[in-house]
Design a protein around this nucleic acid. Structure first.
Lengths: 143, 143
DNA sequence: TATGCACTTAGAGCCTACTCTAAGGTTTTC
DNA sequence: GAAAACCTTAGAGTAGGCTCTAAGTGCATA
């Protein structure tokens, strides 16, 4: 199956502008062009774009993604490096998950706080002190 | 306990430039200034900056964070709105966690793939086909 | 008293990642 | 054959979030 840039854009939720921008930045060196000059995406190219999205979505800058492609193009001697790169990225995701969990705790606390405040129609000093005490408990252990 | 901008920056892993930038953008309207004009951060102000980091870190633009501050300054009538805002942000975090998990699956797959390739010293067409079959299995169910 | 460090402001500059425009080519459909 | 719906390029513009510089103030220690 082959796709035009517009079809790929729709499939992945990107704009054609963005995909061309990626190409210009050297992120799509495998994509061939048809007789009229239009890009022709093979299944493999779409898979590759999905990996690009995955790396980008976990915080890797486009420059570094390009470095990975260059490793791919250098053949089997860079296999180990590529493996290391993905292992590093896995750690990156784990770190992000840990951070998100910490943020979630804070947000949950705020939700509980505002839930109480809404119920009382105010978050004046008495309500605030009550919740400050709860936060101290949470941070320093119970009692 | 009171802190200077430099102490807060160190404590939160930001630069003084960034903190002043946040102030300029209206994100720190509570921070007072001492007789010499230097910002004086109370414990509360530090807590507030931590919430700013939390909202920013879960994808809220600085502009929207400022909107939240403005709600805070408008008093008890905006409590419900503030509660909604945090609930929305909780959903945002949940969404991000789901996306991260999906990315993790892809990365794990790549790690397994490159592990195999490194072991064989190559990722030629035979190795690739073997892994393509595994991916099909993974995507479309077993067998 | 002078050296050094932390603070101040205003404002310019920078980086990433788009995002869009202009001007034009090709393909398909009526 | 002409209009619609694609595609192309080069290059300018934008948004968000810093990041840094210049020029200066104030406090503290040798």
């Amino acid at each position: 199956m082959r796709y035009s840039i517009g079809q790929v854009a729709k499939k992945l939720g990107l704009t054609t502008h963005t995909i061309r921008y990626y190409d210009k930045e050297g992120l799509l060196p495998f994509v061939r062009k048809g007789s009229s000059g239009a890009r022709v995406f093979e299944e493999d190219d779409v898979d590759w774009l999905i990996i690009v999205e995955c790396l980008k979505g976990t915080g890797m800058p486009l420059k570094e993604i390009r470095t990975y492609i260059q490793l791919c193009q250098q053949g089997d001697t860079t296999l180990q490096k590529r493996l290391e790169m993905f292992k590093k990225q896995k750690e990156e995701i784990e770190k992000q998950m840990r951070i998100l969990k910490q943020y979630m705790e804070k947000i949950d606390f705020k939700i509980a706080y505002y839930g109480d405040a809404v119920e009382h129609g105010t978050d004046d000093i008495y309500i605030r002190n009550k919740w400050l005490a709860k936060e101290r408990e949470r941070l320093f252990g119970h009692k």
